[in-house]
Write a protein that binds this DNA or RNA. Structure first.
Lengths: 152, 152
DNA sequence: CTGCATGCAAATAGTTTGCATGACG
DNA sequence: CGTCATGCAAACTATTTGCATGCAG
């Protein structure tokens, strides 16, 4: 994937988010636009606080409540994927808002989004065995990333 | 699996937990034994508060801090599996403390532990693509259980 | 006996809520 | 212009911590 293709993809994500907002008659404030832009383009699965700090650099009066409310809205619209962790260090992916596998470094917290052969067969097996009607899933692998392996 | 086999399995889990404690020279207090027993035998992936309430019925002075500390200890010993959720409604499995798939009902919160063909091949593919050294994973499917499907 | 475990209360962190003010459509 | 969004502070929840006392080994 070239750089310009990545840029295009991010612009597409932002456009899609904006379309969802408009479709439901939600208002587009400068703060919202800033938050959407950050989430649509970030590669690093930011935390709420990370998004907050970044928005603040453009709109210094923004409150963290607005960040929470906007992210909650995007969650409802299925335009952001929430990665919750037991210790409350939740992170967000606005780039790929659909369920997909992650490789998470337990030391530096880096998160990768590798393309993996589908988990659809696993889903199918789950349905067979449980009778559940499935709507989404979570598939995360935890370990040490190459950098942290070197550094001990 | 018969009832007596299930009972045996739970006793085995408790025995294993006790062995791990003894191996590391941790003390066995009545409160700890009660908490271990609850976690080793519960089928329903209890919350901290659920464990707390149950211990209290036997030892009314038990504090919730003790429950937290004991669960933290069992986590370190890999004798309990923690299932964290974004809203902080964390749940614990002392029955099967190793990573395994779950089917989670988004309405009634029931959690099943179906036996599923291994995810080892997926793990292998992750290693190939990311270079991570993996130590554990999380695989959960969310949807409606059969009961909640009927009730609308 | 000696030190780890307990229990209480206070502290902390993340998130949510109420409400007056502001601004998008 | 009416309504929804914002910003602030207070409230809330889950969890952690400090410390005096208790009890397992």
């Amino acid at each position: 994937m070239t750089n310009s293709e990545i840029t295009t993809q991010k612009e597409d994500r932002l456009a899609q988010m904006l379309a969802k907002l408009k479709g439901r008659d939600f208002r587009l404030t400068p703060q919202r636009l800033a938050i959407l832009t950050i989430l649509a383009s970030s590669e690093d699965h930011p935390t709420v606080d990370g998004v907050y700090k970044e928005v603040r650099s453009k709109f210094p009066t923004t409150s963290i409540a607005t960040v929470y409310k906007t992210i909650a809205l995007l969650k409802e619209l299925n335009e952001v994927l929430e990665l919750g962790f037991p210790d409350g260090s939740n992170r967000y992916d606005g780039n790929r808002p659909y369920p997909h596998p992650h490789a998470i470094c337990i030391k530096c917290k880096k998160i990768l989004d590798p393309e993996i052969a589908s988990v659809d067969q696993l889903s199918e097996e789950m349905v067979q065995k449980t009778g559940y009607v499935l709507s989404f899933h979570r598939l995360d692998f935890f370990g040490l990333c190459p950098d942290c392996q070197k550094k001990g």
